[in-house]
């Protein structure tokens, strides 16, 4: 009886070691390392944390004030998505808002949301431009076929927001 138990336990242990070992090795060599390399190659941004499970990869990135959301971020995201493959990629950008910036954002968010829902994207641009001029802060605004990227800046503080274009009813994924 004891001998049989040992056989079962050995089988179990060997299988678990092989399967999980393989899984984690793949995760390390094929995902975590390349992501780290890509982030390291991109200027003005550092990797804060990395977490992966079988269906989802979560990354926290910390940009410095010189990071351009409109220029650098879409490229970075594209490269990371290629690495991650079929899994869901969640990127969190850690921004650095001041109370004033936060307050301004709270004002413009209505216009931005309205613009996205009604697909009148120039409204968004108008709202942000007028508010920025009024409050004397700088801003960056751009969009591609998936997201709208908005950044408000008043040195040394900045706030980043990324809105998905086509899934207004889905949860907001990239609201870092």
């Amino acid at each position: 009886m004891k001998k049989r138990f040992i056989s079962v336990a050995t089988g179990l242990l060997v299988t678990l070691t092989a399967l999980f070992g393989g899984f984690f090795a793949h995760q390390w060599w094929a995902i975590e390392q390349p992501i780290k390399e890509v982030v390291a190659e991109t200027p003005h941004i550092t990797l804060q944390s990395f977490d992966a499970n079988p269906n989802r990869v979560e990354i926290k990135l910390k940009p410095d004030p010189d990071f351009s959301l409109a220029v650098d971020y879409p490229v970075l995201r594209q490269r990371l998505e290629e690495i991650v493959g079929e899994r869901e990629l969640s990127i969190q950008l850690i921004d650095h808002p001041s109370p004033k910036l936060q307050k301004i954002w709270d004002q413009v968010v209505f216009g931005v949301s309205e613009g996205i829902v009604h697909q009148r994207y120039t409204e968004i641009s108008d709202v942000i431009q007028s508010t920025a001029e009024q409050e004397k802060i700088s801003y960056e605004l751009t969009m591609d076929d998936e997201f709208i990227y908005i950044s408000l800046q008043e040195d040394p503080h900045f706030i980043y927001r990324v809105f998905p274009l086509h899934s207004a009813n889905d949860e907001v994924k990239e609201n870092g």
Partner: peptide, 16 residues
């Protein structure tokens, strides 16, 4: 017995 152990291991991995 070894096969049984391996089967259990596989099931655990699939659940994971």
């Amino acid at each position: 017995e070894v096969a049984l152990g391996a089967g259990i291991g596989l099931i655990i991995f699939l659940l994971f």
